[in-house]
């Protein structure tokens, strides 16, 4: 279910841990699988569990506990806005509202063309850069004023 490149990445993560502690790589393995497939289907979770060598339900626990994992299909770009208090004081909640209006969707929804999914996030540890928006889990965008949001959305195909 995963490309040789993804498997090689997982193998690299595995080298970080003692040989009898393969389970430690579960989170990165799921992350790598999600990057390849954009979301974690049950089959994919089971595949990763078998690859690591843990019971499927143990991998499923991990996939459901950490909220950057997506267990439903998401749009081509997942946008997560932090609306927690420190960010909200500097426009985080407003940025979220602006995105909702602009994309015509609510939090947790995907645009009809499958381009964007919008999520409300918790503190990302970047409150000083508020408003902050995380694009596809791994790319943090700072100071997301309406203009900055417009510009960013235009860049994302």
């Amino acid at each position: 279910m995963l490309t040789p490149e993804s498997l090689a990445q997982i193998d690299r993560e595995l080298t970080k841990y003692p040989a009898d502690q393969r389970r430690s790589a579960t989170m990165s393995a799921l992350r790598i699988a999600q990057v390849e497939h954009r979301w974690l289907s049950n089959e994919l979770i089971e595949f990763v569990a078998n690859y690591i060598g843990i019971p499927p339900v143990a991998a499923y626990e991990v996939a459901t506990f950490y909220n950057m994992f997506d267990r439903k299909p998401v749009g081509r770009h997942k946008l997560t806005v932090c609306t927690n208090l420190p960010c909200a004081l500097s426009g985080g909640a407003d940025a979220g509202k602006y995105l909702q209006q602009k994309l015509g969707i609510g939090y947790g929804e995907t645009t009809a063309d499958g381009r964007f999914t919008l999520m409300e996030g918790e503190c990302m540890g970047a409150c000083g850069y508020a408003p902050v928006m995380l694009v596809n889990n791994h790319s943090m965008c700072n100071h997301m004023t309406p203009e900055a949001i417009d510009k960013k959305l235009a860049e994302l195909e």
């Binding site: 927690n84 208090l85 420190p86 503190c123 990302m124 540890g125 970047a126 409150c127």
Partner: peptide, 9 residues
């Protein structure tokens, strides 16, 4: 991840 903290980043 404590709201308000962003020093370690």
């Amino acid at each position: 991840g404590e709201p308000g903290t962003f020093k370690d980043l």
